[in-house]
């Protein structure tokens, strides 16, 4: 799991360096993490599952053994988190 917050002061981390494993080239800068990367591992798994199920909450509910409104509420929570991340950027 990609670390997204500073373990010392809990501020949001930025990407400073990216490296090509083929030729060793390093790209340095200060890049924001993608919004999806800021979500928890569970939330990211939920989004992956959502995409794999073509956005069918009914299908997800039966796979996760949860009721439809519970799955829809989980999605609403993620939407709320994404909205708050986007407004804080």
């Amino acid at each position: 799991m990609l670390p997204t917050y500073c373990p010392s002061c809990h501020a949001q981390l930025k990407v400073e360096c990216l490296k090509c494993e083929s030729c060793g080239t390093e790209v340095n800068g200060s890049y924001d993490l993608p919004v999806l990367a800021l979500l928890s591992e569970d939330d990211q798994q939920f989004i992956l599952r959502f995409v794999k199920n073509s956005g069918s909450l009914k299908e997800m509910a039966s796979q996760m053994k949860l009721s439809y409104p519970t799955v829809r509420n989980l999605l609403n929570d993620i939407i709320h988190k994404i909205n708050s991340y986007e407004t804080s950027l």
Partner: peptide, 11 residues
């Protein structure tokens, strides 16, 4: 029980 049962099933 509604985290697992809702909708027509609960009805």
């Amino acid at each position: 029980p509604f985290t697992r049962i809702a909708g027509w099933q609960a009805f």
